[in-house]
């Protein structure tokens, strides 16, 4: 029987790697994948909780997370395409129109 803490540690590590990738990478597609990483980290902990607390709501929540992630990926990638069409770049630090 694997203790829940192990899952949670794994979840924390995956999430933190996602955070790091989100904050540090320049390529916008990789940034997007970092978001998926963070979501998956959270999903791991949710499923682990669901299993250990014997409560189905955790798994239901994961289901919704996946649905929202799909929606978000569709929108986000559409934004990336129109952005690339206008700016011809996939690097987020090339986009600083809001600079004060």
């Amino acid at each position: 029987m694997v203790p829940i803490q192990w899952y949670l540690w794994l979840s924390v590590i995956v999430f933190s790697i996602g955070v790091f990738g989100f904050l540090s990478r320049r390529n916008i597609i990789v940034i997007f994948m970092s978001i998926e990483l963070m979501l998956n980290g959270v999903n791991i902990s949710l499923v682990a909780f669901s299993h250990y607390l014997q409560d189905m709501r955790g798994q239901i929540l994961v289901f919704f997370v996946i649905a929202v992630a799909a929606a978000e990926a569709a929108i986000g990638l559409a934004i990336i395409i129109s952005l690339f069409r206008n700016k011809a770049t996939a690097h987020v630090d090339d986009i600083d129109e809001m600079k004060g």
Binding site: F22, L23, V92, D93, I95, D96, E97, M98, K99, G100
Partner: peptide, 17 residues
């Protein structure tokens, strides 16, 4: 103060973090 506004979304995200 305007220097804070770099216009870079990742730096805003870092502040948020």
């Amino acid at each position: 103060f305007r220097r804070i506004q770099t216009g870079l979304v990742q730096e805003y995200a870092a502040v948020m973090a």
